[in-house]
Each structure stands twice: as C-alpha cells, then as structure tokens.
C-alpha cells in the first residue's frame, strides 16, 4: 500500500448536478457530465477549461469534498468516496484566492493548527513547519500575521498548508489565478519542484501556456464533458498543421477579421498587436488551401509574413472548446 499504484487517481464516469433551493429560482446545474480519466504516479496532470466548465467541481469530487451523483473515484487504490479518513491522510488541496487562512494568526500558527488536525506528532512538528516555510520561501514571514501577507505570500502559505501532511497526491485549483506574473512564475517553479520530489499533481487552470508549460498530460473540459485528453503532443495531432495560418501585417486588419470570422470555412480568427505589428491567427475548419486567397485579402494591410504555423495548445483549445473563455488565455506570462 505504499503508493505503488501506477494510477494513484482514477476517476470514472463522474457526474454531479447542483440542485438549487426552490427559493433561489435558479435551475439545477449539471456541473460535471460523465468525466473519466486517470492520473499517473508522479506526473502533473492538467484539467483545462473555461470558467464554469466543471474543473473545480471535478477536483472537489477527487478530494473527498464533494460526493458525485454517479461514478467512482479511486485514490491510491482506496475508495475516494467512502474511505474518506484514509484518503484525506494522503491527499491535499490548494484553492486559489485570498481566503482559506486564519488571517489573525501568523503563518507558523496556521501551519501548527493544521499539522495537529493531521495528527502530526508533536516531536518534529516544529522542524516540519520550518522545512515547509523554507520550501515556499516564507521563513522570514513565519511570525507575521497572515493579514499582513501579500497576495503571493498567501498563495505560497496555502501551498505550505497543503504540504503539511506530506501528501502523495496534491490538487491545485487555479494555483496562479490573480497573481502577478513574476509571482505566478515562482509558484509554477514550486509546482515543478514538488512534482520532481515524487508527488502526483493534478491542477486546474484556464491559462493555456501554464498547462503547456507544466503538464505532462491534459484533459480539456467544456460544459462538464471531456473534449480532449492526452499529452500536449497527442492533443496537437487533433489539429493538422495546415489548418493554422498566421498573417503579420503593418496595419490593423480589423475590418477583414470581422468579416472573416463569420465565414463558414473559418473555425476561429483573432488579431493581436505584437511589437507594433498586427498578428492575425486564422484557424480553418477543413484542410483547404486558402493561403493565396488570404494573401489577397490581407495585401492592403501590408503583409510582412504569411504562412502555415504549428498549432499551439491555445489553437487546440479553441477548436475543441469553441471561442468561449479564451479571452485571457495565453497573455499572462
């Protein structure tokens, strides 16, 4: 039982509907609709999807916080729904956000409290806390009240809290949401370090680059269902190279882009301004040769460069999920 499971996390046919009270007047919400996947030992697995796709609900079902309506969860060979006490000893979860710590206590006092809830022996508890503070780089802030922590310090404290029971499986729900770019980078390198130390990590994110950078395997979910599942390379095979055309122009091709986006042969098109140029990425629905057509259409904006491009994870995401929810993907480096 010492964690020698090839797949420490196995989810099968998870389904969850949230029933609202009659008074709220809201319809019931089917949050997760039959999701199955497994996570390999020691890998970083990503659940990717737009807001409201069911990522958090899924992670809660895998971490004993929520009982699925249907389906099963096996954690390290144990029943993840019934064998709660034993499962909880060996997993932990970090939720993004400002909340989740006792802000009138110091970081050390927070960790001490949770260490005791995990029944960590008093002998060695302080040493463990020092070690955790060191891992997340909060040694100097250990005896400051959490209310005086910055947003990034709080997030690192969340991670320290989640490491208190030395979990074999660590869930991270949007671990970098709302963080400054540099701090988010620190958190990502911390996540990689943890995976390197042998922990199995499952994270949710809606940042494409984050998933691409961190995850060994990914599941993309949309509206509670899986729409893509595999390594980044496997996912990229789902969209052929010849389907992506990139055009770099001097002037803003705004009008043409608007026109193109309603064409039946276009899956998705967007423009962004990079270093004074306008870079338009066009995803075609089928493998049709439209290079010369687009060359003509864009010529009036002064083409600097036009050609096929390799699909990024973002392209795949767009073709699988549709246009929704990608508005802030990819630009938060």
């Amino acid at each position: 039982m010492s964690g020698e499971h090839e797949y420490p996390v196995v989810a099968e046919g998870l389904r969850k509907t949230f029933r609202h009270t009659r008074r709220s007047g809201l319809p019931d919400k089917l949050a997760v609709d039959g999701v199955s996947f497994n996570v390999r030992k020691g890998e970083i697995f990503g659940l990717l999807g737009p807001n409201g796709a069911g990522k958090t609900t899924t992670i809660k079902m895998l971490s004993t916080l929520l009982i699925p309506d249907e389906g099963s969860v096996r954690i390290l060979g144990m029943d993840g729904i019934k064998d709660v006490k034993n499962v909880r000893q060996r997993i932990n979860l970090v939720s993004g956000g400002e909340r989740g710590l006792y802000y009138r206590l110091t970081g050390r006092q927070n960790l001490r409290f949770f260490a005791n809830l995990y029944d960590i022996a008093k002998v060695g508890q302080e040493a463990l806390i020092d070690k955790l503070l060191d891992i997340v780089g909060l040694t100097e802030a250990a005896d400051i009240k959490v209310e005086d922590y910055s947003r990034g310090m709080k997030q690192r404290m969340h991670i320290a809290r989640a490491l208190v029971n030395d979990p074999e499986i660590l869930y991270l729900d949007e671990p970098t949401i709302g963080l400054d770019p540099e701090i988010a980078r620190d958190v990502r390198s911390l996540i990689r370090k943890l995976a390197g130390s042998g922990k199995t990590i499952l994270l949710t994110t809606h940042y494409m680059f984050e998933a691409e950078e961190l995850c060994d395997r990914i599941m993309i979910i949309s509206k509670g269902r899986s729409v893509g599942y595999g390594t980044v390379a496997e996912l990229k095979k789902m969209v052929p190279d010849t389907n992506i055309i990139e055009v770099v122009t001097n002037d803003d091709p705004h009008d043409t882009v608007a026109k193109l986006s309603s064409e039946h042969f276009i899956q998705h098109v967007n423009t962004e301004r990079i270093a004074g140029r306008h870079c338009t990425r066009i995803q075609l629905k089928d493998r049709t040769d439209l290079l010369s057509y687009l060359d003509t259409v864009f010529s009036k904006y002064g083409i600097r460069k036009i050609g096929y491009d390799e699909p990024t994870l973002e392209d795949i995401y767009i073709s699988l999920v549709g246009g929704e929810g990608q508005e802030d993907g990819g630009h938060h480096r």
């Binding site: 006490k85 932990n92 939720s95 400002e98 909340r99 989740g100 710590l101 809830l117 029971n165």
Partner: peptide, 18 residues
C-alpha cells in the same frame, strides 16, 4: 467567511472535534 472551512474539511479530523 474566511474560507477555512474547506481546509478543515480536507483533514481527516472531524469538524466536531475542532
């Protein structure tokens, strides 16, 4: 309010003891 309910629930400790 503080969001600490979830971390407590995550531990093997029962809420009643806390």
């Amino acid at each position: 309010y503080n969001g600490t309910m979830e971390p407590i629930m995550l531990t093997p400790t029962h809420l009643i003891d806390v």
